[in-house]
Design a protein around this nucleic acid. Structure first.
Lengths: 141, 141
DNA sequence: ATCGCTATTGAGAATCACTTGCAACACGAT
DNA sequence: ATCGTGTTGCAAGTGATTCTCAATAGCGAT
């Protein structure tokens, strides 16, 4: 498996973009963070190492890393700030169409049961869950 | 089953809060929206009916509706603005602790397979998915 | 009816997390 | 050296939400 840096360099040159010091420093930092992080975490850690990279550059580079598939952003973006009334409704999960934004609701017993099992395995007291399947709906595929 | 309004009134009086016109108008609007919505949708629709309710009140009331369990907010809030590097990692899902914010990763084959099945049932081309189980971890429960 | 108290509201300022505009700069090609 | 495009930092702009605060409403006590 090639390392992340080669892959990023490849992606950048394929796009005609430069592998600048800032971009590589950010990649480095990102790969050294072994849990979920926010843009600001990267900024703070780089600052500690006396790199002077502006937040704007962090955001711009993270976007490149996401595009190149090295980094994944919170995958429920389209649900942010959304509500739904649940009163009188049964629990359900969602299929979200990446093309038209349509949201389809569904219910599936076996998945629910397996989730309970996973929670138990991790000694985790489940309070709720949310499953989002992203893709393309019948109208858009 | 009691209607949503009774339930909301009950919740409000239990909390010593008033069932004001604004709150009831917002509840009404929310219950008439049969898909996911944002605070601004409620505001726009109320404005059309020439209710003059400020956005601040909409947000305040939505918070009450969430607390009372009538409305559910996007359940991946804690993941917003978070990234993780995925290069060289296998796909996994997340357990999120509501108390300490800890995020535990897990993989589960049967769930993955059932998801594929659900997508097929809805003639949906799956591009990815994300499953979040919320609850309390072993340290916090 | 009037008073006094707390709850509630609207307006606008503040905040937070990004994003964008822009001028300065870097660097390979000419 | 010059040009041209790509990059960056700074600072201003955004959009969604939250906060502050003064005005108002509602309700029980007088």
């Amino acid at each position: 498996m090639p390392d992340a840096e080669s892959r990023f360099r490849e992606y950048l040159s394929a796009k005609g973009l430069g592998a600048t010091d800032q971009r590589l420093a950010i990649l480095d930092e990102v790969m050294s963070l072994h849990r979920h992080f926010e843009a600001d975490d990267v900024h703070a850690r780089l600052r500690q190492k006396s790199h002077r990279i502006s937040p704007a550059t962090i955001f711009r580079t993270l976007a490149l890393l996401v595009e190149s598939g090295i980094v994944q952003k919170n995958p429920c973006e389209q649900m942010v700030g959304r509500y739904e009334h649940v009163f009188g409704h049964q629990h359900h999960d969602h299929l979200v169409c990446l093309a038209c934004g349509r949201i389809i609701e569904f219910r599936n017993g076996p998945i629910e049961r397996w989730q309970q099992k996973v929670a138990e395995e991790h000694d985790f007291q489940m309070a709720g869950h949310h499953l989002i399947i992203r893709g393309y709906c019948s109208r858009c595929r």
